[in-house]
Simulated scan of single mutants.
Amino acid sequence: MRGFSHVDTWVFDLDNTLYPASCRLFDQIDVKMGEFVSRRLGVELVEAKRRQKEMFYRHGTTLRGLMTEHGVTPDDFLDYVHDIDHSAVPANQPLDAALHALPGRKLIFTNGTVAHAEKVLARIGITHHFGDIFDIVHADFIPKPEMEPYRKFVRQTGIRPGTSAMFEDIARNLLAPHELGMTTVLVTSPDNHDAEHLNRASGQEHIHHVTGDLAAFLADLGAGLKGNQSLARST
């Protein structure tokens, strides 16, 4: 199993990775996406949800499907679906403490928007840990799991993939990081139904670690790295 002693940069997905899927925040976004598709395509809500899910699975995001198949302007979609109540996201002091103890640079790489990410991070109480947020706009609206946004993320942030770790809730979104040489961590939850569906269809060879408790995983990781540093100083 690949370790973390070489890692100096920690890259995190946002939705259902840094906050638990059980708070159902993404359910609000899912409802708004269905409404948007229903109005845009002129179909009933049930049919709109079916088409929305098809686009998500086929293109990586609903937005990419709408842009590719229906010529939707991204700002209209993003403004509508992220107009939600973020109060469902709970504060997470253990995660805050674990991130504080983790040495190195910390970044966000999300298929969402900077504005949405900033609201989520503020609710969790971890904004101060992250030096940069790379969102779907920075990615030219090309979503994970396509390789192109990962390459642009590397260029824009200046990270070294070989000394970086990527945390994600969707297994296929770790294929490109693995190919680039990053250490990969899958964050799982039984409440994350869309990811569960995708993850069953994905191989696991590109995943180095799996955790169902991100805060505890990072806390153990930080303690281990600190212990290694102390041991190195004493020898």
Rank of each mutant, 00 (worst) to 15 (best):
residue 4 F to I: 00
residue 8 D to R: 13
residue 13 D to Y: 09
residue 13 D to R: 03
residue 19 Y to D: 02
residue 20 P to S: 05
residue 34 G to S: 10
residue 42 G to N: 06
residue 43 V to A: 07
residue 43 V to I: 14
residue 45 L to M: 13
residue 46 V to C: 08
residue 49 K to G: 09
residue 49 K to N: 15
residue 50 R to K: 15
residue 51 R to S: 10
residue 54 E to M: 12
residue 55 M to C: 04
residue 57 Y to S: 13
residue 58 R to S: 12
residue 61 T to Y: 02
residue 62 T to C: 08
residue 72 V to I: 11
residue 74 P to K: 01
residue 86 H to K: 03
residue 95 L to I: 00
residue 99 L to N: 04
residue 102 L to I: 01
residue 107 L to H: 03
residue 108 I to A: 06
residue 108 I to N: 02
residue 117 A to V: 00
residue 123 R to H: 10
residue 124 I to R: 05
residue 124 I to F: 02
residue 130 F to T: 02
residue 135 D to I: 00
residue 140 D to M: 10
residue 140 D to C: 11
residue 145 P to G: 08
residue 146 E to D: 15
residue 147 M to K: 12
residue 148 E to I: 07
residue 150 Y to C: 08
residue 154 V to M: 05
residue 155 R to V: 10
residue 155 R to S: 13
residue 158 G to H: 01
residue 159 I to G: 06
residue 161 P to L: 05
residue 164 S to D: 05
residue 166 M to S: 08
residue 173 N to K: 10
residue 179 E to Q: 14
residue 182 M to D: 02
residue 183 T to S: 10
residue 189 S to P: 05
residue 191 D to V: 03
residue 193 H to V: 14
residue 195 A to V: 03
residue 202 S to T: 13
residue 226 K to R: 15
residue 230 S to I: 12
residue 234 S to L: 15
